[in-house]
């Protein structure tokens, strides 16, 4: 276990995030809606940060921009000094494949693959497939008996454990989680979060988590609050 952590710390040493004057708006039926208005934010390597705010404050949009899922209207997203907003579709896909791990509220597991294949999927795509590390994750996540099952045969808690396993198996420098416990009850949510924090800390990943819950946000190193597209 120790040796893996050392490897990852080496990989992630440069994973520092800096957002500069970031803006994003969408066309809606009522006209143009400015979701993010000049966001500036710095995250250090290994930081665990909670992103809070009311519905519509722009949390998920900010997360999607940092994940390279979408492009800002203006501003820079510097990941390890490189502006990913300047990358083309292929470049951003490579960034998501190799450097980012995503955990969603809806889990978004691949329904056609069994649990084992789901966990290995992102790591294989990233070219970092490591059976020993996956086995360890499986053991720590407690999904060893579920490996041949398909997502639709799992409970919500089990699905989120598998989703976390999939993310961490790829050993990403940056873990982005969007309401990861939003679909789970409190006990299950806490158990899943404990696991995610522990594994993220262990691997030295930077964690940015969107949550509505102040209780959960209090457990992270830092909180950033968004209101009407601005950090308050």
């Amino acid at each position: 276990m120790e040796s893996y952590i050392c490897d990852i710390v080496v990989i992630l040493a440069a994973m520092v995030i800096a957002l500069r004057n970031l803006s994003k708006s969408y066309e809606t039926a009522e006209g143009r809606l400015e979701v993010l208005r000049g966001i500036d934010l710095d995250l250090g390597a290994g930081d665990c940060v909670a992103l809070t705010g009311e519905s519509g404050s722009g949390k998920s949009t900010l997360l999607h921009l940092v994940a390279g899922l979408d492009r800002p209207d203006a501003g820079e997203i510097l990941i390890g000094g490189r502006d990913i907003s300047k990358l083309d579709d292929r470049g951003r896909a490579a960034y998501r494949r190799t450097e980012v791990g995503l955990v969603f509220q809806q889990f978004n597991l691949i329904p056609s693959l069994d649990v084992a294949a789901n966990i290995a999927f992102h790591a294989k795509l990233a070219g970092r497939h490591d059976s020993a590390w996956e086995n360890e994750l499986v053991e720590r996540l407690g999904v060893g008996t579920l490996l041949t099952r398909y997502p639709e045969q799992l409970s919500s808690g089990q699905q989120q454990r598998v989703a976390i396993g999939r993310t961490l198996a790829a050993r990403p420098g940056l873990v982005l989680a969007d309401e990861p416990t939003g679909n789970l009850d409190e006990a299950n949510g806490d158990a899943v979060l404990d696991l995610m924090f522990s594994l993220s800390k262990g691997t030295g990943s930077t964690l940015l988590m969107v949550t509505h819950s102040h209780r959960l946000a209090d457990r992270l190193d830092r909180q950033i609050h968004l209101r009407s597209g601005k950090i308050t």
Binding site: A67, D89, R90, A93, R96, R97, L109, F121, L125
Partner: peptide, 16 residues
């Protein structure tokens, strides 16, 4: 979309 979006999010381009 629900089947393709996660794969896209994990770094497979829309073209691929």
């Amino acid at each position: 979309l629900p089947q393709l979006a996660p794969v896209w999010a994990m770094g497979v381009t829309r073209r691929d």
